[in-house]
Write a protein that binds this DNA or RNA. Structure first.
Length: 492
RNA sequence: GGCACCGUCGCCAAGUGGUAAGGCAGAGGUCUGCAAAACCUUUAUACCCCGGUUCGAAUCCGGGCGGUGCCUCCA
């Protein structure tokens, strides 16, 4: 089965055929850097990170470009309100983007160009658009004449006359037609400004992506991505600009991810119902957020809630438990040589089939859960096995864990050391519980003494004391361990 | 008003023509001193409703109802 991708342009899943054999050019609209990233930004970044990783897994040489929009009205406004410059604002939020988003296990794109580094390329494109009659100068700026581009609306399925009927179009006295959009704006005093044939000014929003994608990927490239909300007008306008300039097809496959909702409503700054990545990461491991984000298909809306995050955490914890077990058991029992080259082709095949069907990560997680149950079943057999059998079981567990890790590499999960994951979670949460780790260990020892005396009342008292504190004990053959009590029922 | 998308177990979520994956929660059980964890069993005669096409539909078509998004900055 070959890779099939849902193409917004045609509204269908299509078999993916790259322009150049074995290579893929992909451009994804990044963020406008005027504030901290919220979960919606995280979703878009994670979704395309998974796509990037999977394309590479398939053996493609991928050129992945994701831009920063660092010149924009909102940035300017922020700078004014802070009394700083827009360059400072942009720089700061680019830093914050790295700080907040990269812990989610994001691989660096091939290039992360900034709009302000490509002003000349934009000017060059605008010039051609004017020469070709697609754009006109007016009031110190330049506008794209939407009516001149025959295919306008082909991506979003909109028709020009229907758009005109809509009552929500920006009014600008200089526009010949209300649908026209700005390619170049005259700068007001104090705003960032660049020299241009039309005087000091700054670029409109849409032209930067046309200019940068053209520069790094050429006239026609394979994949262009972004959030659903970018389909219109941003991507529609990009097509008008780029195809206006080159006269050739701009993009073969358009991929758009769905929104993150809060109570079935789109998360957005303007609605004020957003959570920043930063505040979520205070309470949850980054991989929990990542797992939550890829537990649904990338085109579906997902509802963000504490309950759903807790559920994701529970699932992730289970995987790290078996990962930890395999790691610990291997130290004493099986040399890695015995397991490293083991393959599990059937499972990898299922994984590939799921991913090939428009990157169905939700199905992949389902398969992974099946596998996890198999592994726990094996693990449960160990106590009653001979040492020969134990070794055999461990080898099989390692095969499965190998698959988990390999799939994890592609979807960006299970990438941290199990010890670190488990201890890290404990350390972060234990502060909230008002108890010290040494105290827990002391009580465990005390309780185990009681258990040896068969003083069950004392033992149970200690256990329930700890449970009230939020600490759950687990008695195993290897001794007593503890974990932070996590209930998906608890709400915040 | 125009254009899209969506409606699957209490909740989350795959499945888009061949007879309903997976997770959470629930119930019973194994293990355990008792628990916890894990495992086992169990939980949708059925996919918003009504028609139609078909040997056969959650899946296709038509009509409702409900929800969301885009048409303004937005991942």
């Amino acid at each position: 089965m070959s890779l099939r991708i849902y193409n917004t342009l045609t509204g269908q899943k299509e078999i993916f055929k790259p322009i150049k054999h074995g290579e893929v050019g992909m451009y994804v609209c990044g963020v406008t850097v005027y504030d901290l990233c919220h979960i919606g930004h995280a979703r878009a970044t994670v979704v395309f990170d998974v796509i990037y990783r999977y394309l590479k897994y398939l053996g493609y040489k991928v050129t992945y470009i994701r831009n920063f929009t660092d010149v924009d009205d909102k940035i300017i406004n922020k700078a004014i309100s802070e009394g700083t410059g827009s360059h400072e604002v942009a720089e700061r939020y680019i830093k914050d983007f790295y700080k907040d988003i990269y812990p989610l296990g994001i691989e660096r794109p091939t290039c992360e160009p900034r709009a302000t580094d490509h002003i000349q390329e934009m000017i060059d494109m605008i010039r051609i658009l004017i020469d070709k009659g697609y754009a006109y100068e007016a009031g110190g700026g330049v506008f794209y004449s939407v009516g001149r581009f025959e295919d306008y609306g082909k991506l979003s399925g909109k028709k020009i006359d229907e758009l005109l009927a809509g009552a929500r179009i920006e009014v600008d006295e200089h526009k010949r037609d209300p649908l026209d959009f700005a390619l170049w704006k005259e700068s007001k005093p104090g705003e960032p400004a660049w020299e241009s044939p039309w005087g000091m000014g700054r670029p409109g929003w849409h032209i930067e992506c046309s200019a940068m994608s053209h520069k790094y990927l050429g006239k026609t490239f394979d994949i262009h991505g972004g959030g659903r909300d970018l389909i219109f007008p941003h991507h529609e306008n990009e097509i008008a600009q780029s195809e206006g300039v080159t006269g050739e097809r701009y993009v073969n496959y358009w991929i758009h991810n769905g929104f993150v909702d809060i109570n079935k409503e789109k998360m957005s700054k303007s609605l004020g119902n957003f959570f920043t990545v930063r505040e979520v990461l205070v309470r949850y491991h980054p991989e929990v957020l990542r797992l939550f984000l890829i537990s649904s298909h990338y085109r579906s809306p997902i509802d963000f809630s504490d309950y759903n995050l807790k559920e994701a955490k529970k699932v992730l914890d289970r995987f790290y438990d078996i990962l930890w077990f395999a790691k610990t058991a291997n130290m004493v029992s099986v040399s890695m040589k015995e397991v490293l080259h083991e393959e599990n082709d059937d499972l990898m095949k299922r994984f590939e089939d799921a991913m090939n069907d428009d990157f169905n990560t939700a199905l992949v997680i389902g398969y992974l859960n099946d596998l996890l149950r198999d592994l726990n079943r094996l693990k449960d057999r160990m106590p009653n096995s001979t040492s020969e059998e134990k070794k055999e079981i461990l080898i099989n567990i390692n095969k499965g864990v190998g698959v988990v890790k390999r799939v994890g590499d592609v979807i960006g999960l299970f990438c941290v050391d199990p010890d670190e994951y488990i201890k890290g979670q404990r350390l972060e949460r234990i502060k909230e519980l008002g108890i010290e780790e040494v105290e827990i260990n002391r009580l465990i020892e005390e309780r185990n003494n009681a258990r040896q005396r068969k003083d069950w009342d004392a033992a149970d008292n200690t256990r329930s004391y700890l449970e009230k504190k939020g600490i759950v004990l687990e008695d195993t053959q290897e001794g007593t361990s503890w974990r932070i009590k996590d209930s998906v029922k608890a709400t915040v």
